[in-house]
Amino acid sequence: MHLERIALISDVHGNLTALEAVLADIAARGITRIFNLGDYVGKGPRGQAVVDRCREVCEVNIQGNWDDFLPDPDREYPAGGSMLWWREELRPDQHVWLRSLPFCHDFRLSGRQIRIFHASATSVHRRVYFDHDETAYLGMFENTPATGDGPLPTVVAYGDTHDAYYECDLGRTLINVGSVGNSLNDPTPVYTILEGADDPKAPFSIQFVRVPYDAHAELAVARDLGAPELDGYEAEIIHGHYRGTFYAGKARTYHRD
């Protein structure tokens, strides 16, 4: 029996240095299938290069919240502002590609029905935190207008909150795959490996992998490119502190940023 391994990555956020470190680790493990759960752009300085690289190496690419709102042609951003800088760093064809990405992707592995999306079963903009209640948990496994009809998943993997975790309850498994380019609390990039086979009786495993990289080199690139919010970016990729609480002068709270 041949076991298949799939790497799940998410939330690269323009951090090409972290992405390349994670891709090198994936390749070193002999993994050739990579599924991307979205948020390619924003926060980091090289969204354009990240989009091109993910289009090259990822078998599946789905949409994140930043991929939806940042290139939205109906949104107006102030001249000289951070959002406008991140949007204009991208090419027009990338704006179109990001906004046309699918919402979710369903597949089977070791007899388990698996669904991946960015944030929740209803919207890329609806956030489900680690400290959720049972209603929010069960809602992650539902079919909605966004997911479409199909077999209900027993395993769901998502990103968005940049907090990697695993939860198994009520016969279902929920995974947050973590963030490659903007990991919080522990700023070391993290991704997830699923291992299984076509055989429904085959073993199934979930592994989290943290990959050290040169975050100071990434920060130097951002500085050289004139990227915005450098102190906030440093707070996130060096110290793992969300920039929202950093700029507000508040102590970081792990689950509700």
Rank of each mutant, 00 (worst) to 15 (best):
H132P: 01
G232C: 09
A79T: 11
A18T: 07
D257H: 15
V57D: 00
I34H: 06
N182F: 14
T17M: 04
V57H: 01
G14S: 12
A28R: 15
E134A: 15
A18V: 08
H105K: 11
T188N: 05
R5D: 01
G42R: 06
P189N: 13
G150V: 12
E195Y: 00
A21R: 03
P71I: 09
K201F: 14
G38V: 01
V155P: 04
T245M: 10
E234W: 13
L84V: 03
E76F: 11
D52G: 04
N143Q: 11
P203N: 14
V209C: 11
R108I: 04
A121E: 03
E195L: 00
S120W: 03
L90D: 07
Q207F: 01
G240R: 10
D39W: 06
H162Q: 09
Y165F: 15
Y158Q: 09
D149E: 15
D11V: 12
G240M: 10
P212Y: 08
R75P: 03
G139T: 09
N15A: 14
E4P: 02
L19W: 05
V156H: 06
T161L: 04
E59S: 15
V180A: 05
F204G: 01
T161S: 15
Y158E: 06
V128L: 12
C54E: 14
V96L: 11
A49W: 10
L37I: 06
I237Y: 02
S100R: 14
Y40T: 05
D131K: 07
A222N: 04
L152S: 13
E142Q: 14
R108Q: 13
Q207Y: 02
D11C: 10
D160Y: 07
R75H: 13
G38S: 05
W85H: 12
G150Y: 13
T253H: 10
Y213V: 05
T147K: 01
A18P: 04
L90V: 13
A197L: 03
K250V: 08
E167Y: 01
L23K: 03
G240S: 12
W86I: 04
I31H: 00
A215E: 15
I26E: 01
D198M: 11
N65I: 05
L219H: 13
G80W: 10
G159S: 04
Y137D: 08
R87P: 07
P71Q: 13
L219T: 10
P203V: 06
T192A: 10
G81W: 04
A248H: 07
F117D: 10
D93C: 10
T192Y: 00
D131H: 03
S205H: 02
C104R: 02
D214S: 12
V51N: 07
A136L: 13
P200I: 09
A202K: 05
T154K: 07
A227N: 08
D214L: 12
L109W: 03
T122I: 14
I26M: 01
T135R: 14
G30M: 13
I114Y: 02
V209N: 01
I238E: 12
H162N: 14
V209L: 12
Y213C: 15
R87Q: 07
D160C: 14
G111Q: 10
A220C: 05
V50W: 07
